[in-house]
Amino acid sequence: MDKNQQAIQLMKEQKYEEAASLFNEMIEANPQDPIGYINFGNLLLHVNDAERAERFYERAIELDHNAATAYYGLGNMHYEKQNYKKAQENLLKAIEIGLEEADAYYLLGMSFFHQEKYRLALPYLMRAAELKPDDTDYLFQYGLSLAQSEHINDAKPLFQQVLEQDDNHSDAHYNLGVIALYEEDLSTALDHFNQALEIQPEHMLAANAKKQIMEVWNNTDM
């Protein structure tokens, strides 16, 4: 196991000072190699030192303009800071260079999503879900972007797939309830809202939707 692998393993074991020491040795031994700077940046970001992490990522890019993982690190950093425009720019650059990682596509899609650019988010969230089909977060957010883009019929099977993988996903139940309302199927909608509330009693959106259905039914009975 080389020093880089040792340091990454130490990070996984939360031995951050030891990992930092090894990354520092790598940089001192090979100051023109961007890998050491990128990994040190990852470590700094992991311990919430974004300001220093940014400097290490930028140094890596100075050494190698095609250092895709450095752009990914910057994108991840800006995403965590909710600076979605900057996150978008760096993540897009990482993917353009050739980074084919589900996390990169997901964060890029979510950067567009948080800017309410749902249609722009779609291809990246779709690719993330293709690369990690068992990740319910990726499937759910792809479905949500489809729904926000008014592709209701395409969103529905994705929410159903989320529930096949995790039957305690309250937001998937809620969104299927909303789709059932759109389809004018109040009984199915109510069932999904009830299941969402059973899983998450404080789910206010499901509670409000259920209340509206009950008011409609009560008024109809009158």
Rank of each mutant, 00 (worst) to 15 (best):
A7L: 03
M11D: 06
K12T: 12
E13D: 15
E17Q: 15
A20G: 13
L22I: 15
N24D: 15
E28K: 12
I35Q: 09
I35N: 10
N39D: 04
L43P: 00
L43S: 06
L45M: 04
A53V: 09
E54V: 10
A60T: 11
E62V: 08
L63P: 15
L63F: 14
D64G: 07
D64I: 01
N66C: 02
A67P: 15
G73F: 12
M77A: 07
H78R: 04
H78F: 15
E80M: 08
Y84A: 04
K85P: 13
K86A: 13
Q88T: 02
I97T: 03
E101F: 12
D103K: 11
D103C: 00
D103W: 08
A104F: 09
S111N: 13
F113N: 13
F113G: 11
A121S: 11
L125E: 03
E130H: 07
D134S: 12
Y138S: 05
S149M: 00
E150M: 06
I152S: 00
P157A: 00
E164H: 13
Q165W: 12
S170L: 07
H173E: 09
Y174P: 00
G177T: 01
I179D: 05
I179P: 04
Y182L: 03
E183N: 12
L186R: 03
T188P: 04
D191W: 11
A196R: 06
E202W: 11
M204Y: 10
M204S: 14
L205R: 12
A206N: 09
K211N: 12
K211R: 10
V216D: 07
W217L: 12
D221F: 03
